[in-house]
Design a protein around this nucleic acid. Structure first.
Lengths: 196, 196
DNA sequence: CGGTTTATTGAAGCCTCTCAATATGAGTGG
DNA sequence: CCACTCATATTGAGAGGCTTCAATAAACCG
């Protein structure tokens, strides 16, 4: 409900990679068992306020309310897409482009839950967190950030991010709003109970 | 059924990133609508032989056979985990480590479908493909490959990969067999039909 | 047997990392 | 309100990994 969390993984050599971000309104375990099984822990990046949904309640509610069921699928698809685009960032975007992309993504996601006002929003995370999210060192995050500020596209102070030129940021990020066409998605009717 | 495929994404600057690999036996669209919606194309890396399952048939079969339903969830979870670990590779593993990790993953996955004999298997992809998979340049893939061969851990000729020292490869890859504990997964019973 | 794709090699340069030091800010207790 | 402490941010310098460009060798294909 409040605060930012993430799914992450720490390698034996001590390096951490953040897999995905959970923002206010996000569902950490859309259909229950997903994250439990994978072994990736979920950690808080800020103090958190969370809602706990018993599996049975969620399951029953999803069965009773088709629109909720659809919303769960929608969430699953969107989350998946975000992860995929994160992979593209890590593999094929430069440090600057990754930073820009991250801000674009946050702008998009936080807008969905009405947490953006005039292209300004809170970013209650540390530069080290951003580094682990983007696969960079915190030093380099700092420098990229300064460069981005110097170009006049954004400003970031007191954990407030202000995007001055959204289109310039999107261009830099190689942003492609492929997720925005989710409106009329009707995924396959989910199969029956898994008792086997 | 035969051949390798992948889901990928090409950025405006022409760079390609491969999101995930589909090997023989893999399901490209586990619950139907997932990839269709995200905009990521699926491409063949080799000549392909595929089975096409009509959505209704799959849906009905999953409802009628709980074990199949469970298998679909299992597949979804495993695929998800593989993607996540791929992110960790891109973000926090060096070129050598990524190569090693890729071979470990392939060894694991191809073993599941009985395509590995004595730690030897086919790898019918080009070095450029591997580069796009690991977020590297093909030149660097070539050099990392040579280094890996020179160390005596593997040999790769005629698109045949031979792993001589599996444990050394796993160590190098920072391999962590977290997916191997999938045996007794019973995910949440999938919710009802999505008509909304 | 040519023609095209793929693999290999070399050299130069940049992007990003690591190490290390300093500055700034937030929180705490006096 | 200030001194102290700790986490975070910033800066510098040097090194290294990886990339790009470009050329050559090898393998594949009809």
């Amino acid at each position: 409900l409040d605060g930012w969390a993430c799914r992450y993984r720490v390698l034996e050599n001590g390096k951490r990679q953040i897999i995905s971000l959970f923002l206010p309104g996000d569902i950490c375990e859309p259909f229950g068992a997903l994250p439990r099984v994978t072994g990736y822990p979920i950690g808080a990046l800020t103090p958190l306020r969370v809602a706990w949904l018993p599996l049975e309640d969620l399951s029953r509610a999803a069965r009773d309310y088709p629109s909720l069921n659809k919303a769960l699928w929608w969430d699953l698809l969107l989350t998946e897409t975000l992860v995929h685009e994160g992979m593209v960032s890590l593999g094929r975007r430069s440090a600057m482009e990754r930073m820009a992309y991250l801000f674009c993504e946050l702008h998009f996601r936080l807008s969905l839950v009405d947490l953006v006002r005039d292209d300004v929003f809170d970013m209650p995370v540390t530069q080290a967190d951003i580094a682990d999210l983007l696969g960079l060192s915190s030093v380099h995050v700092n420098r990229s950030l300064q460069e981005l500020r110097g170009s006049g596209i954004i400003s970031l102070r007191w954990q407030h991010l202000e995007i001055h030129r959204v289109s310039a940021l999107c261009d830099l990020a190689l942003w492609d709003p492929i997720y925005l066409d989710f409106g009329d998605v009707v995924p396959m009717a989910a199969p029956g109970a898994a008792t086997g």
